[in-house]
Amino acid sequence: MAIKINDVSFSYLKKTPNEVKALDHVSFEIPKGKITSIIGHTGSGKSTLIQMLNGLLLPDSGFLEIDDFKVTSEKRKNKRIKDLRKHVSIVFQFPEYQLFEETVEKDVAFGLKNYGLKENESIEKAHLALKEVGLDKSFYKRSPFELSGGEKRRVAIAGILAIDPEILILDEPTAGLDPKGSELILNLIKELNRNGKTIILVTHDMNIVLNHSDYVIVLNDSTLSFKGTPSELFTRDVSNYSIEIPELFKFALLLKEHQLNIDIEKIKNVDDLINQLKEIK
């Protein structure tokens, strides 16, 4: 079982003067059980791609295989879309804008009820999801609209987690949060992955790519331009991709070039670098 993207193409505003190509014959695989980052400039096709992974958009040509689901260009062949969306869920950018119920617990339970769970059962699961994102009992009965930005974001994420998807896609999960809020979310993502979830991150932040992902996909002008590990990506010439190599990585490379025994593959954060330097010393 895996996630396969097969020769997928897609355009917006088809057959109009403003037609925009979003994906142009893209093929690759996303490994299960890992954290994969999809990066690329704005308009590179990454949002289009993630929306296809749970059937919100259908490809113009080509197809996607997600475990035993298949997303193709023919509308009527995609009958199990609702099951697919339970299997692959997306946390969109600024998900706090999707909250609408009177209480936090009801909002988190909303998705579960849509998938046919009973009221009390769904509330129970909602509580578990809220615990996962670090919100305690005192939040259950509060209105989601009176929470802070970071708390709202966590409620929204809990709303998706409650559905318990196998594959979780997060689009810019830390955008607009302060450092403390970002850290909370990133730790949560790591924890989820450790518990077996496949995570797909869409991000512009190269530090997140380096620090948190196992695998990275680069989309550039609607085509695939790289797949591999973050360290493979950052050791390449990335000048065409509008990617800024993290300074940490640049520094590690610099040391390596000067014959220091640095294992580039293992550098994820400053601690890793310092530990390696300690051993050298």
């Binding site: 919100l56 969306r85 969109f92 804008y97 998706i160 559905i163």
Partner: peptide
């Protein structure tokens, strides 16, 4: 955007 987000919640 909101429709898509809610569609993701079933």
């Amino acid at each position: 955007r909101i429709m898509k987000a809610q569609a993701s919640r079933g």
